[in-house]
Simulated scan of single mutants.
Amino acid sequence: MLNIQFNSLIKLRRLMPLPALILLVTLSLPSCSLKKLVLDKTADMLSGDMGTEVFSGDDDLELVGGALPFALKLYETILSQNPEHTGLLLTTGMGFISYANVFIQTPSFMLPDDRQEEREALNARAKSMYLRGRNYLLKALNVLHPGISDLIYAGRTEDALKDMRASDVPFLYWAGTGWFAAIGVNVMDINLTIEAKLALSLVEKAFELEPDFGDGLIHEFYINYYASVPPGMIEGSEEKALYHFSKSVELSAGLNPMPYVSLAGTMAVKNQDYRQFRDLLTKALSIDPESNPKNKLACTLAQRKAKWYLAHAEDFFIEVISEGEES
């Protein structure tokens, strides 16, 4: 018999989200097998498309930012009872990495220079969240391929990744990009920065197995990667960045503003090409978020960054040319 009476359960339902209520009930179940069944079903529900699209399909950044911490702690609570559920490990890892990027690192990037102490604190927290997400994803890969994380950390990435399949691509992509993002937050952390090749190997393997994954997500990563490197460091880096930009736009049917924002904030700034910068961001802002309902959150974020870049163009360019000044 459950410890929670029916009338109390009805009252709790009005106060709690369904997954949290399921968890509360589950923890009071007397049968281990029944508890595991319910935990499995709950984890399946949270890690399915419906669970993730609740967030990705919302265009209210503040609402999602307020809800995500509760969701992430809920995921961790369920994982404490069901630690090898690879679907929920993936969702949790993605969640921490996305939260770090959207709600910690991006606001940090937008802070004025006179708030450097606050920026450093936010960046430290973002790095921690990125690595927390990466760890969940490496754990998932370890469940799927026992011993793989030891091989990766030993630098034996070729041995570690030789048996990867297309079904492993989401784990590889998110683990690699989360790891790389943590490095990018503070490149002066030498112990972490020397792991960049390990992080990159995961993304490269994902690209080898499924280059068009996520309607161009890996291409988005490579836009930033190739467009950000100093001139001459990687031969043909600008051509590669433009290739990945083109592919990302093609795969998203032109409905994703992020490739435009990424190229503007990297290559256009590096080359001090204000016209390209302005044109790319204007294009990003012309995309209707409703045209891609499942990714309204990413679209809203990209367009917020585009507006911020345009409003702060003088921070990035020696000369800002208004449309009226063009010949």
Results as ranks from 00 to 15, higher is better:
H219N: 15
F221V: 01
I223H: 00
I223L: 02
N224F: 09
N224K: 07
Y225C: 01
Y226V: 03
A227V: 09
V229F: 09
V229A: 14
P231F: 02
M233K: 12
I234S: 05
I234M: 08
E235F: 12
G236H: 08
E238Y: 14
E239C: 08
K240A: 10
A241F: 01
L242P: 14
H244S: 05
H244Y: 02
K247A: 15
S248G: 11
V249I: 15
V249H: 05
V249T: 03
E250Q: 15
E250F: 13
L251Y: 11
S252N: 07
G254S: 07
L255P: 15
L255H: 09
P257K: 06
P257M: 04
M258H: 05
P259Y: 12
Y260Q: 06
Y260L: 09
V261F: 07
L263M: 11
A264N: 08
G265F: 06
T266M: 01
M267S: 15
A268M: 12
V269N: 00
V269T: 02
N271F: 08
N271C: 06
D273Q: 05
D273I: 04
Y274A: 03
Y274F: 14
R275L: 13
F277M: 09
R278I: 04
D279L: 07
L280P: 14
L280E: 15
L280M: 13
T282C: 05
T282N: 13
K283F: 13
L285A: 07
S286G: 10
I287P: 15
P289A: 09
E290R: 13
E290W: 08
N292M: 13
K294C: 00
K294G: 03
K296I: 02
K296F: 01
L297Q: 07
A298P: 04
C299R: 03
T300Q: 10
L301Y: 03
A302V: 10
A302Q: 08
K305Q: 12
W308S: 06
W308A: 08
Y309E: 05
A311N: 12
D315M: 00
D315K: 00
D315W: 00
F316R: 01
F316G: 04
F316I: 02
I318G: 01
V320H: 01
I321M: 09
I321G: 01
S322K: 10
E325C: 02
E325V: 04
E325A: 06
E326V: 11
E326M: 13
S327P: 15
S327G: 09
